[in-house]
Design a protein around this nucleic acid. Structure first.
Lengths: 246, 246
DNA sequence: ATTTCGCATTAACATAAGTTATCAAGGCAG
DNA sequence: CTGCCTTGATAACTTATGTTAATGCGAAAT
């Protein structure tokens, strides 16, 4: 499988010394059981986490007790970054599957900006990429219907999972309950069920035993609310004028 | 009024030389008329913009022709950053009022990371703050009802406008049409109208001639989907270990 | 084997929000 | 002054989605 560091190398390819400088800050990996939470809203911010393995949901609780999942994190993602701007955590991080994370203390981030400025550019661009993802999610939820949202979600997950080699033959593990899918898409689990069935009947997907298979990708794409934006990769770095020589 | 640079000084207070290094990159201010667009989805990315004056909407167009406004930019905001991660612009930037912007070329961003690393930390944290704002918006749209969404929007704008001294006596200019409010909240303009009326009848707000007055803030807060998160300000910098001495 | 539990499924019914349509008020061009 | 055009307001009607509730099924627990 691709290195779990793909997200850190997407925009700026690190040199060997940079790589080791970076990884020196990674704490001892920690196992998290499915359903456990890593951090809750209101918790103190001790740092961020690098997700080595498993799925993690980032969610926000509203006054009326409803919860919105704002991001499904997959291996290679950094967890908890947005809360760096806050006094206390603004999101709950909960494991959707058993997971392994490596903690990165706050001060390490400062040091990365100091010791490995190229990597800092990478972190910056990565944050911008996450903004794009959130903008898309907001557009799905705010301006499209259930089928279009679900289709877009499945395509997005399919795409992101294929980057970490967890798709084979268009099929992948799908550990989310329909209730959780509802929390992502802003729908009730009952309606998620109806919508899954519709995609099923249209022949776009097949479901079974915690897996999903995309049987008609073209069809699914045509239903989806929007198409995947295309990310700049190394081109972003060039555009910024390759500020650091090495 | 507060400096329009408040957003750049929120997390890291720049020294005088840093300030001038920063502002050297700001291009000649440009006027944009209401309704004009600065950049459209698919456009080439030549840089970002600093908003000196006016309101700008960042929006995404969906397949079915509906549009989701993902951010209302106010003076002091940086425009167009998310698209730095993309090959071409992923958002449309359109002036909601007459506005003034200062263009910042791509290469300037690289240079800021090189010449003024403390400012780079500021940009990074600012991006995280924007993520938090998007997460909140997503939660409003995905998991709350019309009244709660509108209340949350009004409180948010009230709060952000007061930072730039554009609120007096709880009242502020409100240049958005109800149609545009609908594009922010994921509602139709008809329903936005109903919802405004409801807030009006509850005595929370008063409307007239492109202005809004918040007459019962406590009440409005209690209706809103969520409360304002509290941002870390200079504390964020300390938490990162104050990586740069000066 | 039996019980329990979490989750998917489905149906009947309720409602928040969407759609379509009309009218009024104000700004603005001629 | 007149006529257009944008925006706000409101009404009647439709619909996508929410609510409540019941059933079934497989996995884990005892």
């Amino acid at each position: 499988m691709n290195s779990p560091f793909h997200r850190l190398e997407e925009f700026v390819s690190p040199t060997e010394p940079e790589k080791s400088k970076l990884q020196r800050h990674f704490g001892e990996p920690r196992k998290i059981g499915r359903g456990q939470s890593i951090r809750k809203e209101g918790d103190r911010i001790d740092g961020i986490f690098f997700l080595l393995e498993g799925w993690i949901a980032s969610s926000i609780l509203l006054r009326d007790g409803k919860r919105q999942i704002v991001k499904i994190h997959l291996p290679g993602d950094l967890l908890g970054c947005p809360s760096l701007a806050l006094r206390e955590s603004g999101e709950t991080l909960e494991a959707l599957t058993d997971a392994r994370i490596s903690p990165i203390p706050n001060c390490a981030i400062g040091q990365i900006f100091k010791e490995a400025p190229r990597m800092a550019v990478g972190l910056f661009l990565s944050a911008q990429k996450e903004r794009v993802a959130l903008m898309q999610a907001l557009a799905w939820v705010g301006a499209s219907q259930a089928v279009e949202r679900l289709a877009a979600l499945l395509i997005d997950l399919h795409h992101r999972l294929s980057v970490v080699d967890q798709v084979s033959d268009g099929a992948f593990e799908f550990p989310l309950t329909q209730f959780q899918v509802g929390e992502i898409l802003g729908l009730t689990y009952v309606h998620v069920n109806r919508t899954f069935r519709k995609l099923d009947e249209l022949g776009c997907i097949r479901r079974g035993k915690g897996r999903i298979e995309i049987t008609d990708q073209a069809r699914l794409q045509s239903l989806a609310a929007s198409t995947q934006p295309s990310f700049a990769g190394a081109f972003a770095w060039e555009r910024l004028g390759k500020p650091f020589a090495a």
